[in-house]
Design a protein around this nucleic acid. Structure first.
Length: 213
DNA sequence: ATCCCGAGGG
DNA sequence: CCCTCTGGAT
């Protein structure tokens, strides 16, 4: 297909072309279960996945289950996660998250969005990451990259991440929402960067309304 | 300087 | 809606 003219058409074409461009796109946060991915995602704010992956082996060895983390000494957790930045907030979130799982969800990560977002440190973006990556459930994480690219590509006119998420949900099949988000993030980092997008090397530049090529 | 998949609080 | 929280890599 060439030059799709509707938002939905552009969304489908974006998915097709970026899948070809980044065939190995996947979540790069190391984890073995939803609890570990939830913790890793909390740690990933303003931090590279590689950095998170350097601290999580120690974190998960020390606190293998939510029950262990719920009773953790904050100072000890801070020492483990310090290098990921925002370490006081992240420590509070991690311990609060673990306590919520133990006290309200029988030590399991809840799968419903309405439950997930009540957990300390877990917003919609994090909830959608855990749902789509660790649970195989529909979820389309909208972060700064997904929001920016969706606007530029004319997939939406909204700037509120929740509204963007709902509009994208209406255009992307449930089974592909997770990968769609991952692809936009990758493309947003490598090509469609915030400041000066590299439109001249972008595989979407023939139909992107914001292209300056 | 700028970037790295944010969430909570005022 | 804006502010704050934070360290590491480039």
């Amino acid at each position: 297909m060439a030059r799709p003219r509707t938002p939905k058409g552009r969304a489908r074409e974006t998915l097709a072309r970026l899948s070809r461009e980044y065939p190995d796109a996947r979540c790069e946060l190391d984890h073995r279960n939803p609890y570990e991915l939830l913790a890793a995602t909390i740690l990933s704010a303003q931090c590279t996945d590689a950095r998170v992956n350097m601290v999580t082996p120690t974190l998960f060895a020390r606190y293998p289950e939510p029950e262990d983390l719920a009773d953790a000494d904050p100072a000890e957790v801070e020492d483990i996660v310090r290098s990921t930045g925002f370490y006081k907030n992240k420590t509070r979130s991690l311990i609060g998250m673990a306590r919520a799982l133990v006290e309200r969800y029988d030590g399991e990560v809840p799968s419903a969005m309405k439950d997930l977002v009540t957990v300390p440190g877990v917003g919609r973006k994090t909830a959608n990451v855990v749902r789509s990556v660790a649970m195989g459930l529909p979820g389309l994480p909208v972060d700064t990259h997904v929001g920016r690219l969706s606007l530029r590509l004319g997939l939406t006119t909204e700037t509120d991440p929740v509204k963007v998420e709902h509009e994208l949900n209406a255009m992307v099949p449930a089974a592909q929402r997770g990968i769609f988000s991952l692809l936009l993030i990758l493309h947003g980092r490598r090509v469609c960067v915030a400041r000066t997008p590299r439109c001249e090397v972008c595989v979407l530049n023939d139909f992107c309304p914001a292209s300056r090529v």
